[in-house]
Every structure is written in structure tokens, then in C-alpha cells.
């Protein structure tokens, strides 16, 4: 928050600045205070009571909700799905996105057209995405099974969203479809700043394509790389829309993540206190990652690697 005029401005100016500053900031602060900070503090209170949404004086249970959470096998199961989601859902779009971005990097004509197409899924609402992919995964007339049958792989036909062991990966594939375009666009914008002479020099020195990618290109786009990593990682903890729409956490809780399980408890089972505690856990888990990666990313860009 550096402002060069801070110390040189005369007192009159500074006083005027303070007045205008406070006036300009009030509307935003009211919104933040009322619709964010206040419910956030409430959340802390809800997590130490047994609230059913009706009783105005809910029973104080101390750390009871936290104890229950640690002993609840469904929490650990949901968390393991979050971990799967984070690992697969972070690595796949980054790898696929980087490869496609590299491919698009050298395309002269039509590059913009492809970029638009690849990006489009990212701005569609999760509900619409979930519905269409539900059709593609349809066990009887869905395109996936039809296509597998057509190329002679009838044995691989499955009820993709109906099988507990598969469903989470089927939803993940959908999520990867939806996010990769975004990763491509980000990487492309970073690649524009890569020093092409370095890449050419490495080629002349006999470095092959993977070596050029690993030693020359990746270090130059590292800050953007970390940024994408942060976004997908943190997003992995709070994933909700797409799972909620495609399976609602089913079949038989197989695709539950912390988000859907918290929703279930709070809004279907009226266990407000417990649901809030679960939601708090999502925050507690994701914030350290966000801060750590943000620091790392900032340090990398300070080294003048030119994001």
C-alpha cells in the first residue's frame, strides 16, 4: 500500500484525503461487515452449540461438534474424496492445459479461435454442465457407452455415475473438461513472455523438447504455474456445485465431499451446528495452502522471473 504522496502532501490535503477516503470506503465496509464478518463470527458460535434452526437458545456443547467430527467415519470418507479431487483435479488440468498451451503457442492462424473454444466450458454454470454430462454418462443411451460399444469395447460400458467406485472419477473428468480451458488461457498468456531466444539457443545446443520445457520454459512461467496450482488446490477443498448437481453425494454417499456433507447436515438433517463445524473445517484446511502458495508465488515473481 505504498503511496508516494503520503508524506509530501500538506496537512490540508491529507485531511481532505482522509475525509474522502472514509466516505468512499463506508459502503463496501458495511457490506463486508454485515454479510461476511458478522456471519463468520456467528459460524464460530454455531460450531460450539447444538442448533437445530428453531430453538432460540441452543444447548452449548463446547468442542462436542469437533469431537463428533473426528469420530465420524463419513467425514474421513468425504475428506478422502476431497483429497482425490485435489490430487487428480489439480494435476490433470495443469498437465493437459500446459501441453495444449504449448501446442497453441506456435499456432499462427486460428489460435484465437481455438483459445475461445477451449475457454468456453469454464464460464458455463455448473448446473448446466452437470446435466449435460449426466446424459453423456447415461448407462443406456449415453454417448460414452454408445461410443465404447461402437469401437468394440462393450465390456467397458458402465453406469458411470451409478457405480460407487467410479462415480467420483466420472465427475472429476467433467470438472477437468470444465477447467482445462482456463488453465490453457493462463499458460498461454504466460508463454507470450517467455524469452524465445533462450528456447532457440537450447534447441541449437541439442536440447530435446521435454528438456526445453523442463529447463527453459517452465522456470520462466513458474509464478503463473504456482498461481494455477493455488487456485485449483484451494478450489479442491470447497468443491460443491458439480457434485451436488451430478450425484448429490451419492450413490450411497460414495461421492460425498466435505461441502456436500456439510450441506446435507445443515439443510437436510437440520444439524446446523454440526454442518457449520464441517464447513469451518473446509476453511481451516484450505487457508494455510492458500497463504503458503501465495507466498511462494510472490517470492518467485520477485526474483524477476517475469510472470
Amino acid at each position: 500500500m505504498s503511496n508516494a504522496s503520503r508524506n509530501t502532501a500538506p496537512t490540508v490535503t491529507r485531511r481532505a484525503q482522509t475525509r474522502l477516503g472514509i466516505a468512499l470506503i463506508i459502503p463496501a465496509m458495511i457490506m463486508v461487515g454485515f454479510f461476511f464478518l458478522f456471519p463468520l463470527v456467528q459460524a464460530l458460535y454455531f460450531s460450539v452449540v447444538d442448533y437445530d434452526g428453531l430453538n432460540p437458545n441452543p444447548k452449548f456443547v463446547g468442542l462436542g461438534n469437533f469431537q463428533e467430527m473426528l469420530a465420524d467415519p463419513e467425514v474421513w470418507h468425504a475428506l478422502s474424496n476431497n483429497v482425490i479431487w485435489i490430487i487428480v483435479g489439480t494435476i490433470s488440468p495443469i498437465v493437459i492445459g500446459l501441453l495444449i498451451a504449448m501446442l497453441l503457442w506456435t499456432v499462427r492462424r486460428g489460435g484465437v479461435f481455438y483459445r475461445i473454444l477451449f475457454f468456453l466450458p469454464h464460464i458455463l454454470p455448473g448446473v448446466a454442465i452437470g446435466i449435460v454430462w449426466g446424459w453423456i454418462y447415461d448407462p443406456v443411451s449415453g454417448w460414452l457407452n454408445q461410443a465404447l460399444g461402437a469401437i468394440g469395447l462393450k465390456d467397458l460400458e458402465k453406469g458411470w455415475l451409478g457405480e460407487p467406485s467410479l462415480a467420483i472419477y466420472a465427475i472429476l473428468a467433467t470438472a477437468i473438461w470444465a477447467t482445462t480451458g482456463f488453465v490453457i488461457v493462463i499458460f498461454l498468456s504466460a508463454l507470450r513472455n517467455v524469452d524465445i531466444e533462450l528456447v532457440d539457443a537450447a534447441r541449437i545446443d541439442g536440447a530435446n523438447a521435454p528438456q526445453r520445457l523442463w529447463y527453459i520454459i517452465l522456470p520462466q512461467i513458474m509464478p503463473v504455474f504456482m498461481m494455477v496450482l493455488t487456485l485449483t488446490l484451494v478450489g479442491g477443498f470447497s468443491v460443491f456445485d458439480i457434485i451436488f448437481v451430478m450425484t448429490g453425494g451419492g450413490p450411497a454417499n460414495a461421492t460425498n465431499v466435505l461441502g456436500t456433507y456439510a450441506y446435507q447436515n445443515a439443510f437436510s438433517l437440520n444439524r446446523i451446528g454440526y454442518g457449520t463445524t464441517l464447513a469451518l473445517m473446509i476453511t481451516v484446511l484450505s487457508i494455510p495452502f492458500a497463504i503458503f502458495l501465495n507466498r511462494l508465488q510472490r517470492r518467485l515473481s520477485l526474483q524477476g522471473m517475469g510472470a
Binding site: 456471519p39 463468520l40 459460524a43 445443515a266 446446523i272 473446509i282 484450505s286 497463504i291
Partner: peptide, 14 residues
């Protein structure tokens, strides 16, 4: 930093 999830439930009652 804080996901909407964390406070969406209290916000409902608020």
C-alpha cells in the same frame, strides 16, 4: 481467503 461455505449457514439464519 474464507470460502462462502464457512458462513453460508449462519447467513441463512441471519
Amino acid at each position: 481467503l474464507v470460502p462462502f461455505f464457512t458462513y453460508m449457514i449462519p447467513l441463512y439464519y441471519q
